[in-house]
């Protein structure tokens, strides 16, 4: 008898979501909210000075860093180029190595399950190691320089690339592959003729994306001794030569923006 103002629904209408689902979602929402509040509370307690202290420190820091010393540009240009080269070499090697790995980690191509699971697990382990840890290990093994940095970047980007590309491979149209198989193509021919053309644009785009990541990562890796501009930045900070350090930071900033802009444009044209 609740239908006084709504004569179109004479009986009880079903809810859009089942009551059980509604309850579950509500509980999950409050649990997540609780976790947020708790972690906010704890991090606040850890922060010694709070926000007010940070603003005061900021002026002191800015004062030390400015003006940047433009005279060092010619001296830091070399290491900057080294950093870019590091990223280029690492991305190229990773892009080549990723092809077999991505194919072996794609469920629709590697129908032999143990091999698929093995590759997947290997890639998962690869991805759990942070690039900084890799760099520290390799610098310890091979000494300070570009080589350990390149090695760390290769392994780091291989983890990301192979994962993303294997997922691209899993989403391709399988019909052309069936047609190639039906016309007598062997495994390699089927992959080369029906699979590669389908994933090539995404592959190129992802490689460029990982290249962008590698440029930034190679700067950070330099801080732990893996060569390039990061190494110089770390030295200058160590000598308390803040104007020089500022100039390096500005140069990195410009280079990263330019490379990202170019790479984004290329990727837009591809897809």
């Amino acid at each position: 008898m609740t239908t006084d103002n709504n004569s179109l629904t004479p009986e009880k209408v079903p809810p859009i979501y089942p009551v059980k689902t509604k309850m579950q979602v509500t509980i999950i929402f409050f649990v997540v909210l609780g976790i947020y509040l708790l972690s906010m509370f704890w991090t606040q307690r850890q922060m010694a000075g709070g926000f007010s202290g940070a603003i005061g420190n900021m002026f002191t820091v800015i004062e030390k860093f400015f003006p940047p010393n433009t005279a060092v540009i010619s001296a830091i240009w070399g290491p900057m180029v080294e950093t870019i080269q590091m990223a280029i070499i690492a991305t190229t090697i990773a892009a080549i190595l990723t092809v077999p790995l991505a194919i072996l980690a794609a469920e629709n191509i590697t129908t032999f399950r143990p091999l698929y699971i093995l590759t997947r697990t290997f890639l998962n382990i690869l991805r759990t190691i942070p690039d900084l840890v890799l760099a520290v290990i390799f610098v310890g093994l091979f000494g300070i320089g570009l080589f350990p940095g390149i090695l760390a970047l290769v392994i780091f980007s291989l983890g990301i690339l192979a994962k993303l590309i294997s997922e691209t491979i899993e989403s391709v149209d399988m019909n052309p592959l069936e047609a190639m198989r039906a016309s007598g193509g062997n495994v390699f021919q089927v992959i080369w003729y029906a699979l590669i053309p389908q994933v090539l644009p995404q592959f190129t785009s992802l490689v460029l994306y990982v290249f962008e990541i590698n440029i930034r990562a190679s700067v950070v890796l330099g801080l732990v001794g893996a060569g390039g501009i990061g190494l110089i930045l770390n030295q200058q900070l160590g000598f308390y030569n803040y104007p020089n350090a500022m100039m390096i930071i500005i140069l990195i900033f410009i280079v990263v923006i330019v490379i990202e802009y170019i790479s984004t444009k290329i990727r837009e044209a591809l897809l």
Partner: peptide
């Protein structure tokens, strides 16, 4: 079941895959 991103001739040549060696076709 054509490879949509490949051109017509390449699609038609795929019919020769069974007659062609792996390296030659790649």
């Amino acid at each position: 079941n054509l490879v949509k991103r490949s051109n017509v001739l390449k699609n038609v040549l795929a019919g020769r895959l069974g007659h062609t060696g792996t390296l030659r076709s790649i």
